[in-house]
């Protein structure tokens, strides 16, 4: 598996990133060197193995969903506030 121009463009679109031309050229070589390392795992037989999400067994204990953050303090971290709400860019 190799990362070519088309695939790199698609990944960047998904990741909300835009590369400069020099980044694009530089990354393609570097990413494919890393891909050679990634491809090593293809040779391992994992047919009867279930994937794991954490390295230890977890018994998830749930808690009450109680808001305890200070809303005023949190909003001090942004200038994008209007009428007490966060504002973002328009969809179109």
């Amino acid at each position: 598996m190799k990362i070519d121009d088309n695939l790199l463009n698609q990944i960047c679109k998904n990741a909300r990133l835009k590369l400069t031309e020099s980044e694009n050229n530089e990354f393609k070589i570097q990413l494919n060197e890393i891909m050679d390392m990634f491809n090593l795992i293809c040779e391992v037989d994992t047919n009867k193995i279930n994937p794991i999400y954490h390295p230890i067994d977890l018994n998830y204990e749930l808690r009450e969903d109680i808001a305890n953050e200070n809303k005023v303090e949190i909003k001090k971290n942004t200038i994008h506030i209007q009428d007490g709400f966060f504002i973002g860019p328009k969809i179109k």
């Binding site: 909300r16 990133l17 835009k18 949190i74 971290n77 942004t78 200038i79 994008h80 966060f86 504002i87 973002g88 860019p89 328009k90 969809i91 179109k92």
Partner: peptide, 20 residues
């Protein structure tokens, strides 16, 4: 948007804002 760097105006298109 909610925290961190905010040096770009939000009048850009949704995706363009985040990409930039």
């Amino acid at each position: 948007l909610r925290y961190g760097v905010q040096n770009i105006p939000t009048n850009l298109n949704y995706n363009d804002y985040f990409i930039k």
